[in-house]
């Protein structure tokens, strides 16, 4: 598979994840910078991806702990 095709595939996957993300109103903080629409959206997408990664890591660590404690 060419690199171009890989990127297109990742793009489609990211777009799909972005549609699944829930949205809700955030309370206004005293921010003065324009965070940028595109930057907010990509943050939500990357955040969801790495957030899933962190969750898996946490459960994996818990599972490992459980497994080793059973062995002992």
């Amino acid at each position: 598979m060419t690199l171009q095709k890989t990127f297109s595939r990742i793009k489609i996957q990211l777009a799909a994840i972005s549609l699944l993300l829930p949205g809700f109103i955030i309370s206004d903080a005293y921010a003065y910078l324009d965070p940028g629409s595109g930057s907010i959206v990509i943050q939500a997408i990357i955040g969801a991806l790495v957030g899933v990664g962190i969750t898996i890591k946490v459960y994996w660590e818990k599972l490992k702990m459980k497994f080793f404690s059973m062995k002992k």
Binding site: I26, G38, I46, V50, G51
Partner: peptide
Amino acid sequence: YENKNAKVKERKVSRRSMTGI
């Protein structure tokens, strides 16, 4: 998003996601 009138301010980034970023 540069020329779109999309309201994206409501997008949620959870604490866990933020930590991940």
